[in-house]
Design a protein around this nucleic acid. Structure first.
Length: 660
DNA sequence: GTAGGGTTAG
C-alpha cells in the first residue's frame, strides 16, 4: 500500500538529487557521445531541449554520462514524463535498480504504463531469492483507480522467470492458473518460461506436459527441457530429446556437454564436443562449451585432447578470456603439466581471482605448497581478494607440504583479513593440515570446538591422520563419535566404518553396516581410472568387464603383480571390507581400477616411456605399494593423479613420501 | 521477452 500511495502522490524532485548531479554537458553535433565540459565553461542559463536529451538517452549512455543527463532533466522546468521513461530504461540497463526504482516510485499520475511495470518486474526477477517482482506484480494488478493497468504477455514471461528464480512453486502455480484463464498460455515465450520454471522446480512431468501441449516450439523450448533432464541427473532422457530436436544452437550443445561433465561422464562430454565441431550446421563452440570441454579433459587427465583443444583455441583466434585462461590453467595442471599452467598464468597481464585460484590449486595438488604460498602472497600484494576456493587451494598446498604454521595463520585470519567465514570445507582442510603433520590432539580439539557440527568428512580426515600416525586410541574415540551420528553418517561414513571393522576382523559389524547401506539403497562412488593412449581415453572400473581387451589385460595384470612381488610388493588387504577369505580379498584388490589401467598402460606403450593415470578416488594402500614396485621392476615413471594429489612413482618410491 | 558455464577439503 505504501508504494501505491506514493504512486498516487504528486511527483516531486528531491533537492538532494539536484545537488548530486552538478556536472553539465557540452553539446556537439557529432554522432559520438558529447564530451563533458569543465566546470569553468558551465553556463546554467543554457538548457538543452527535451528532444536533445531524449536523443542522448537513446544512445545508451554510460552511467557517468547518464547521471549528467539526469541532472539536466531535473533542472528543467518542462514536464519530463517521456524522459523519465527513458531514464528508467537507461538506469535498468546499467544495472542501477535502486535509482530506477526511485524514479518509478515517483512516477507522475495516473500510473506508469504497462511497459515500465514490465521492465521493473524483469529487473527484479533477476534478483534471486527476492519476492520483489511478485510484490510489484501484485501492486500492478491491485491498481484500479484512476486507471487500471493490464498485464500482458511480457509481464507474464518475466513473472514466471521470477518464480523460477525465487524457487516459489506456490507463486508459479498461481501464475499458471491466471495465464490459463487469460489465454496467454498459447504464447511461445510464456510457454517456454513455464517449461523452464517446472524444470527448475524439478517437476519434469509438468515441464514435459507443458512442452507436449505447445502448438509451436523453438530452440528455447527444446533446450530448456533438455537442461531440465540434465540437471535432474537424467542424461539418458536428455540425449533422446537432443536427438529429436530439429535445430540446435550453441546453448543446446553447452547444456549437453555441461550435463555430462556434471554427471562425471567426461568421455561422453568430449565426444559431444567433437561432434559439435563436425556438425554440418556449423554451430561454433562458445566460451561455456570450451570451458566445459577443458574441464572434461582436466577430470580425465586427457593430456593429448586437452592440448588439442588448446591449439584449437589459438588457431581459431579465440580470445583467452578470464574463464578460458582459468580453464586452461586447470587443465594443464591436472594433466600433470604444471609448467605449462604456470606459463599461461604468467602471460596474463592482470590476473583475477579465478586465475590466481586455479594456479594456486594446481601448484597444491603437485605438492608444491611453497610455490602455492608464494603465488598467494603475490595475489595479496596485487590487491586481489581471495575467495573461499582460493583459501581451500592454499590450505591444501600447506597440508601436503607440512607448512603447519603458514596454513594455521591463513585459516585463523581468513575472516578478519578477507571476510571469508570458514565453512566446513575449510575446517576439513585445517584438520587435515594438523592431523597430517602429527598434531592429532590439536586437530581433535578443533573438531570439538568448531561452530559447525562436524560431518563425516571431518571425522574421516582425523581418522586418516590416525592411520598415518598409527594412533589406535584416538581412532577408537573417533569411531564412537561417528556411531553417535547414527543415520547422519552418510554413505562415506558407512564405508569407512565398515573398512575399519573389517581391518579389525569384526565381520559381524561389517555385515551390519553393509546391510544398512543396502537398505538405504545408497551406492558409494565406484572407483574409476582413466588412461590416455594415443589420444584415446580408456576407462576402467573396479572389477571391470567392459573393456574390449579385458581378458588380455587381466592376464597381463597377473604377470605384473607376480613380478612386482619379486620387487618387494606384498599384498595389503586391510582396506577390503567384505567378509572374504584372504585369497578372495587379494583378488578384490587386484581388480582395483588403477591396477587395470596400469596393466593396459604397460601393454600399450613403449618400454621406458612414462605412464599417466587419473583416478576419481584416493589410491588405496595396496595400489600405492604395487605401483612403487612396478615403477622399479619395469623401469617406468608412473604419474598418478588421485582425488587428493599427484603421485610420481619412480624407482620404487613415490613423490608423496607415502603421505596422502 | 524465454534456455547454458569451472576452479573446491577428504
Amino acid at each position: 500500500m505504501h508504494v501505491i500511495s506514493r504512486l498516487k502522490s504528486k511527483c516531486s524532485v528531491a533537492p538532494l538529487e539536484l545537488l548530486e548531479f552538478r556536472a553539465c554537458l557540452c553539446f556537439s553535433s557529432a554522432n559520438t557521445f558529447p564530451a563533458i565540459s569543465t566546470p569553468t565553461t558551465k553556463d546554467p542559463t543554457v538548457h538543452p531541449n527535451p528532444e536533445t536529451l531524449s536523443q542522448l538517452l537513446n544512445q545508451r549512455p554510460l552511467l557517468s554520462q547518464l547521471k549528467q543527463i539526469h541532472a539536466q532533466v531535473l533542472t528543467h522546468p518542462f514536464s519530463h514524463v517521456s524522459l523519465t521513461d527513458s531514464l528508467i530504461h537507461c538506469y535498468l540497463s546499467t544495472n542501477n535498480l535502486t535509482t530506477a526504482r526511485a524514479l518509478f516510485d515517483r512516477y507522475p499520475l495516473p500510473s506508469p504504463p504497462t511497459l515500465l511495470w514490465n521492465l521493473m518486474i524483469r529487473a527484479c526477477s533477476k534478483l534471486h531469492n527476492s519476492a520483489e517482482s511478485t510484490n510489484l506484480f501484485h501492486l500492478m494488478i491491485s491498481l484500479n483507480h484512476p486507471i487500471r493497468v493490464v498485464p500482458d504477455k511480457y509481464t507474464f514471461t518475466f513473472l514466471i522467470t521470477s518464480c523460477s528464480h525465487q524457487l516459489s512453486k506456490v507463486h508459479g502455480q498461481i501464475v499458471h492458473g491466471m495465464v490459463t484463464r487469460n489465454g496467454y498460455r498459447s504464447n511461445l515465450y510464456v510457454a517456454n518460461s513455464f517449461v523452464n520454471m517446472y524444470c527448475v522446480f524439478r517437476e519434469m512431468d509438468d515441464a514435459h506436459k507443458v512442452f507436449n501441449e505447445m502448438s509451436e516450439r523453438d530452440v528455447f523450448s527444446w533446450t530448456s527441457l533438455i537442461c531440465g533432464y540434465a540437471k535432474n541427473g537424467e542424461m539418458g532422457r536428455a540425449c533422446e530429446i537432443f536427438g529429436e530436436m530439429p535445430l540446435r544452437n550453441e546453448v543446446s550443445w553447452a547444456v549437453m556437454i555441461s550435463g555430462f561433465v556434471a554427471d562425471g561422464r567426461y568421455i561422453e562430454a568430449l565426444k559431444y564436443f567433437h561432434e559439435m565441431l563436425c556438425d554440418d550446421h556449423k554451430v561454433k563452440p562458445n566460451e561455456a562449451v570450451i570451458v566445459c570441454a577443458l574441464s572434461a579433459c582436466a577430470h580425465l587427465g586427457a593430456s593429448d585432447q586437452g592440448n588439442w583443444i588448446h591449439a584449437w583455441i589459438d588457431k581459431n583466434g579465440i580470445l583467452q578470456s578470464s574463464n578460458i585462461s582459468t580453464a586452461l590453467i586447470d587443465m594443464h595442471a591436472k594433466c600433470g603439466r604444471i609448467d605449462s599452467a604456470s606459463r599461461i598464468f604468467t602471460k596474463i597481464s592482470e590476473p583475477d581471482v579465478l586465475n590466481f585460484t586455479s594456479i594456486i590449486s594446481g601448484l597444491s595438488i603437485h605438492g608444491l605448497g611453497k610455490d602455492a604460498l608464494c603465488v598467494f602472497n603475490q595475489m595479496l600484494a596485487a590487491n586481489v581478494k581471495p575467495n573461499e576456493v582460493t583459501i581451500l587451494g592454499v590450505l591444501n598446498g600447506c597440508s601436503h607440504s607440512g607448512l603447519v604454521e603458514e596454513g594455521s595463520s591463513i585459516f585463523c585470519n581468513m575472516e578478519s583479513l578477507w571476510e571469508i567465514v570458514p565453512k566446513i570445507e575449510h575446517y576439513g582442510c585445517y584438520i587435515d593440515l594438523l592431523g597430517r603433520a602429527g598434531y592429532l590432539e590439536r586437530a581433535f580439539k578443533v573438531v570439538k570446538c568448531m561452530p559447525i557440527e562436524p560431518d563425516i568428512v571431518i571425522w574421516r580426515a582425523l581418522l586418516s591422520a590416525c592411520r598415518i600416525h598409527r594412533d589406535a586410541d584416538l581412532g577408537e574415540r573417533i569411531i564412537v563419535h561417528i556411531e553417535q551420528m547414527g543415520g547422519r553418517g552418510h554413505i562415506g561414513g558407512e564405508v569407512l566404518l565398515s573398512n575399519l571393522h573389517a581391518s579389525l576382523g569384526k565381520w559381524d559389524r561389517v555385515a551390519q553396516v553393509r546391510k544398512l547401506m543396502g537398505e538405504r539403497k545408497n551406492e558409494s562412488t565406484p572407483g574409476c581410472s582413466w588412461i590416455e593412449v594415443n589420444g584415446v581415453v580408456h576407462e576402467f572400473r573396479v572389477a571391470d568387464r567392459l573393456h574390449t581387451q579385458i581378458v588380455e589385460i587381466r592376464y597381463k595384470l597377473n604377470e605384473i603383480l607376480k613380478r612386482a612381488s619379486l620387487g618387494g610388493y606384498v599384498v595389503t588387504t586391510m582396506q577390503v571390507s567384505f567378509d572374504l577369505s584372504e585369497e578372495e580379498k587379494e583378488q578384490a584388490v587386484a581388480w582395483h581400477s588403477e591396477k587395470l589401467a596400469i596393466a593396459f598402460g604397460l601393454m600399450s606403450t613403449e618400454p621406458g616411456t612414462s605412464i599417466r593415470i587419473v583416478k576419481n578416488l584416493r589410491t588405496c594402500e595396496d595400489c600405492h605399494s604395487a605401483l612403487k614396485a612396478v615403477s622399479k621392476v619395469y623401469g617406468r615413471v608412473i604419474i598418478v593423479r588421485d582425488r587428493s594429489r599427484f603421485h610420481t612413482f619412480k624407482e620404487g618410491s613415490c613423490s608423496c613420501n607415502d603421505f596422502w
